[in-house]
Every structure is written in C-alpha cells, then in structure tokens.
C-alpha cells in the first residue's frame, strides 16, 4: 500500500489529502449534528408522537353512563342514537373534574332547530318542523324531554316527517287529495316508521279510478288508460305529489 502511494505524482497526493480531510470533516460534523437534522424517519416518528399526544376533548358516548342515569333513559327514546356530547359539547374535561367543569345544557330552541328545522335537502322521513309555526316562543324542552325525545302525541300530520313532499303537494293539482287517498298508512307507521311501512300504489288502474275517461266523476281531467302512456306506470311520468302535464 505504502509503495503504491510513493509511486504517485505529488499533485495527486495533495488532492488525496484534501479529499480525506473532507471525508473526516463530514463524519465529524455528521456526528455533531443533532439527530433530528439527518434522519427522516425520526421526523416521521416525532410527528406521529406529537399528533398522538394531542389533547382529547370529546370523551366518547360510553363515558357518561358511569355517573349519569340519562344514559339509561336515553336508550328508549328517538334520541337513542345521539351521543351525549352531540348536544352537550365536548365533555372530556368534565369527566375528569365533574364538579368544577360543567358541560353546557343546550336549552334554547335554536339548538334543537339545527337538526329539526325543515330543509328540503334532508332525507325524507326525518322529523322536521317549521320553528316559526311549531309552538313559537316556548322552549322545546317544555314539551319534549331531550333525553327521551318523542312527540307528546303521535303526530297527526304526515308533514311532520315528510315535510318536503307535503309542501310540494300543497301547491300541486293534487293539493286537495289526502295523503291517505293514495297511501294506506298503518297507525304504527307514525310510531316506528322504518319498521312499519306505508303502502305505495302498485298499478296504473289506481290512478285510473279518478282519471280514466270511463269513470263517472266529472272533475279531474281524463285520459284513456288503455292508450295513454301505455306500458309505463303513471308515476314514471307524473310525479304524483306534483303531477305536471308539460
């Protein structure tokens, strides 16, 4: 090795010395640098650790039952699937120090209305009210128990849960027809709507009983049920809650 070096030109040796010094410098500086600077996986680990250590503010629905009877109560009402903290807000601090930190109790009408005011984009069947019309100025909780929410009486009107259909129908040619003219609704449907279903007409003759040219009644406009629209169900063309002819 040493013999090999001696045979080399002087200039090359100098370059070699510089090169070696650089390598040593890199190693020394590398050792001195804080590990954070060099190691990507350490960044990843540090970030993961930081994220995982963030404070928790929502305690979770299973926490409240250990101290509160409301949890058991709530099981049977319409609100059984609501988490306590959906209404009461983040309550982790409360579970750790129940006496000094109190969650807010949302007693205002507006807080119920966030979920229950009528909005046509809401899925059909979801209970909605018009806050302006539905017993204005009184607190909702004076009639409904928030933990065991249910209508004080079984709702009379289909509009309670089918608000958009009711509104559409109210301005349509069928405005004067009762919902029950076309749907057979077991009383149970208003109590457990997803379990007991209302009926939906199944065949063309159903509309024909008022609209066929052969029926005796004068008033509704007539068509010939045998030729008009032929093989389609009437409501494939005319939405029954807003039957338009254009």
């Amino acid at each position: 090795m040493a013999n090999g070096l001696r045979g080399l030109p002087d200039s090359f040796l100098r370059v070699l010395v510089v090169f070696l010094v650089l390598i040593v410098a890199v190693i020394v500086i590398g050792g001195a640098l804080p590990t954070e600077f060099k190691d990507h996986s350490r960044h990843v680990q540090a970030t993961i650790a930081r994220e995982a250590a963030l404070p928790i503010r929502f305690a979770g629905s299973t926490e409240c039952g250990t101290c509160h009877d409301e949890a058991r109560l709530k099981q049977i009402g319409y609100h059984r699937n609501l988490s306590c903290e959906t209404c009461h807000g983040a309550a982790k601090a409360h579970t750790e120090n129940p006496v000094e930190v109190k969650p807010a109790a949302p007693r205002k009408r507006e807080s119920c209305a966030t979920c229950h005011h009528f909005d046509p984009s809401r899925p059909t069947g979801f209970a909605q009210i018009n806050p302006v019309m539905h017993f204005p100025r009184q607190a909702c909780i004076s009639c409904h128990d928030p933990h065991q929410a249910q209508p004080p009486s079984v709702p009379e009107e289909c509009s309670a849960c089918h608000a958009e259909i009711a509104r559409t129908k109210a301005v349509s040619p069928h405005a004067l027809l009762e919902c029950t003219e076309c749907h057979t609704v077991p009383a149970e449907h208003k109590v457990a709507p997803r379990i007991t279903r209302a009926s939906i007409p199944t065949e063309r003759g159903f509309c024909g009983k008022c609209h066929d040219k052969d029926t005796a009644t004068l008033q509704p406009p007539k068509i010939d049920i045998n030729t008009h629209g032929e093989k389609y169900l009437c409501w494939q063309c005319h939405y029954p809650h807003m039957p338009e002819v254009r």
């Binding site: 250590a53 929502f58 979770g60 629905s61 699937n81 988490s83 959906t86 983040a90």
Partner: peptide
Amino acid sequence: CTFCYHRVTKGMLPACVEVCPTQ
C-alpha cells in the same frame, strides 16, 4: 384532517363520527 389520529390510536372514534346523530 388526521382522522383524529390522537383518538383513533387510543381506540376512540374520530370526533365527527362520535357526534353524528344519524350514524
């Protein structure tokens, strides 16, 4: 969004899932 990393790694639900009233 981190899927509430600090919650889900402890077996809890993300806050948005926790409070959704209709699942």
